[in-house]
Design a protein around this nucleic acid. Structure first.
Lengths: 191, 191
DNA sequence: ATAATTTCTTACCATAGATCAAGTTATATC
DNA sequence: GATATAACTTGATCTATGGTAAGAAATTAT
């Protein structure tokens, strides 16, 4: 297992001083399963850090179908990056898939911490470099793998969270239908 | 056009002081069409800034097929982020699609500049946030759009570079075959 | 516990896009 | 400018995955 795969599975925990600072200007929030943390079409620009549990961001297409952009597990950040630096309203929704503990930090507040704590800026810069790597890895998967291969990879990378994430959401993350995923899972059992 | 689309089209130019500093520790390099800047299976950890021209990074699958991960145009950064923090050899190749001017900076050198120039750290952190946004936007396209819709979006975002980029590479970026792209282009002409 | 709702499975049919193959046009090389 | 090579097009067929529908299983609410 290389460091990228390791990062995908575990994220990078905050150092104590940064976590303390973040908790100073925000509150660790407990959310329950199904709770919407950021709705679509919101004006909020927020960064969410997952202390425990599991969140997901998803895009709702015009035809009503949901497409999962990201699952965020312990030590991961999640937010609507696509509208962070625009005046547009949020394009994704973020919901909790389990009882979770999260830090919700407004973008303008986080910018203040960057100024105050250069080590946080450095931490995030490296963190973002790894995020770029995982996103590129996913793009390559979408470009090169069959439905069944994508599912294999998902199970490897998100093993611990399979129980929390319903299959239809896994399907929507992989870009396949729930029916196809069901067929793929059947093959696995039979062989 | 929102700021994200704007960023996709133009990138973010370096400020003069950062550009000077980067040129101090590296050299602006001229590369010709077809030149390989970073081969796959290399041990190099390099960041490349495109001053002019067009580069692309691509992954070569076992079956020999090439999958384009990124086109980098003026003011864009390109590199193998997937192996930046691992001991693995580079998984993508980077080549020039035109006569281009680039800055090639070793990862260990760039880390030094981050330490010396906090404003460069801040610049890159924001830059990476936008990168994450564009990558997520592409993932949503791959999840939600038909071949023809993906091509429409590509033409909008990369309009200026259509002439430099051969169609089979556009196809490999969109995750379709050159034959399919050819049929899509035919439809456009007929309507 | 029972009912209501949501998620998952399975079967059958439909289709977007892939593959194969052959020709055409464009680009690079001598 | 002729020739070789690479890129593009077009048609015929194939296939992986999607869509529809209906029932089974699991989860949630009463």
């Amino acid at each position: 297992m290389n460091e990228l795969t390791d990062y995908i599975k575990k994220g990078i925990p905050l150092s104590d001083d940064i976590q303390n600072k973040l908790e100073e200007i925000t509150v660790e929030k407990k959310v329950v399963k199904g709770e919407i943390i950021l709705p679509e079409n919101s004006n909020k620009k927020e960064h969410i850090f997952v202390a425990s549990g599991c969140l997901r961001s998803f895009y709702k297409a015009e035809n009503g179908k949901e497409h999962t952009l990201q699952f965020a597990i312990k030590n991961w950040w999640i937010g609507d990056y696509m509208t962070l630096y625009t005046n547009d309203k949020s394009v994704v929704s973020i919901e909790s898939l389990s009882h979770s503990k999260i830090l919700v930090i407004d973008h303008s507040n986080i910018e203040k911490i960057y100024l105050e704590y250069p080590q946080f800026e450095a931490f995030q810069r490296r963190n973002f470099e790894r995020r770029i790597a995982t996103l590129q890895k996913r793009i390559l998967s979408l470009l090169t793998l069959s439905a069944s291969e994508k599912y294999d990879q998902f199970v490897t990378d998100y093993a611990a969270f399979e129980k929390v994430i319903p299959n239809y959401q896994i399907a929507s993350y992989l870009g396949i239908t729930p029916e196809s995923l069901s067929r793929i899972r059947k093959e696995r059992i039979n062989k």
